[in-house]
């Protein structure tokens, strides 16, 4: 037998340009998914850029034309929504919606087409007997989509932040979108990207568990929905809350309010008996002030980064389990 070295021989006789080896195989096999992702990113980026430029201008023009924005306080009816603002809102919604939907599409695709279908039809085994160890195969299946997802999601996130940084007055005028609301919160930071990576990991593990495309697709989407729901519920408690207190009425509403109520003279927190201005009632209940537990907008990054850390840790753990499972099943040395 001839000794074979895989490293120092020139790659192939008919050297064509472009990606090589496992990377080529990944891009070629999932060409449709790649095009779809590029299209999705292009649509999202286009929508956000349009909203940032002409969309916002048209909404402002409409607002001023209605005689709003010149007097303070604004006229009644200035928060009524006109067609230009509706269009603007739709485009923002498309951009943010793609950021929100991408993790679920990723999970479905990873569970179905990326891994599940290959295990079901035996093409995974084909790769494993074409000099690619299962571990390398899985690593490529994870790394290539992860790189493309991260790039696309970060690009859309940056565009969303660009839009967010300039449309503050419009948001204030129309009373729409706050920094802490679900989609906005995720689209403005590292969370949307990390959820997409979590979707990839969950889809891969679901497929390795189910070994069939459609059940894996279903399982991946359901599990990701559960994970996002749980994390969304615990989100306010991932960073210490700040508290505002006030003597006669509630403190101003200035951020993500998590808890509120009344304070007694001993400093105990009680449910508001809703006395409003009735001093007798307040005295009866021994109410001396009110409090609000909240996150100011300066907590955006701490909250964002803690949750990102958790999501990425869960994703890493999922990937680890996936590799373990594959290794146990194939008995393969790396």
């Amino acid at each position: 037998m001839t000794a074979v070295t895989t490293l120092d021989t020139p790659a192939a006789v008919t050297s064509s340009r472009g990606p090589r080896g496992l990377l080529w195989a990944m891009l070629r096999l999932h060409r449709w998914a790649l095009w779809f992702w590029l299209l999705l990113v292009a649509v999202g980026a286009g929508a956000l850029l349009w909203a940032y430029g002409p969309g916002a201008d048209a909404a402002w023009a409409e607002y001023h034309k209605a005689g709003c924005g010149s007097t303070t306080p604004p006229d009644l009816g200035c928060d009524l929504i006109g067609p230009a603002y509706t269009r603007y809102d739709t485009f923002v919604g498309v951009g943010a919606g793609i950021l929100g939907l991408a993790p679920f599409l990723t999970a479905a695709w990873a569970g179905g087409a990326l891994i599940g279908r290959e295990l079901e039809s035996g093409t995974a085994q084909l790769a494993w007997t074409q000099s690619v160890s299962p571990a390398r195969w899985l690593a490529a299946k994870l790394a290539v989509p992860a790189a493309l997802l991260t790039t696309g999601m970060l690009l859309l996130t940056l565009l969303h932040r660009l839009l967010w940084s300039t449309d503050g007055p419009l948001r204030a005028a129309m009373g729409s979108r706050s920094w802490y609301q679900g989609t906005t919160f995720e689209a403005n930071g590292t969370l949307a990207t990390s959820y997409a990576l979590l979707g990839l990991a969950v889809g891969v593990l679901a497929a390795l568990l189910q070994r069939r495309a459609l059940p894996a697709l279903g399982l991946a989407v359901v599990v990701l929905a559960l994970l996002t729901t749980v994390l969304g519920t615990v989100r306010p408690y991932l960073w210490p809350l700040e508290t505002l207190t006030n003597k006669h009425e509630y403190p101003a509403y200035i951020g993500m309010v998590v808890d509120e109520g009344a304070l007694t003279s001993t400093g105990a927190r009680v449910a508001d008996p809703i006395c409003v201005d009735n001093t007798k009632c307040l005295a009866e209940h021994d109410i001396v002030g009110f409090y609000r537990d909240y996150h100011p907008s300066s907590h955006f990054w701490p909250l964002q980064l803690v949750e990102t850390g958790i999501v990425l840790a869960v994703a890493a753990l999922t990937v680890l389990v996936a590799f373990r499972l594959l290794n146990r099943r194939t008995g393969a040395a790396v």
């Binding site: 074979v4 070295t5 895989t6 490293l7 021989t9 020139p10 790659a11 192939a12 006789v13 008919t14 090589r20 080896g21 496992l22 080529w24 195989a25 070629r28 790769a127 074409q130 000099s131 690619v132």
Partner: peptide
């Protein structure tokens, strides 16, 4: 493409 798949996954070994 299937043959290229073999070539890409078996660098240095593949015989076209």
């Amino acid at each position: 493409d299937t043959l290229r798949y073999g070539r890409e996954l078996n660098p240095g070994r593949w015989d076209d």
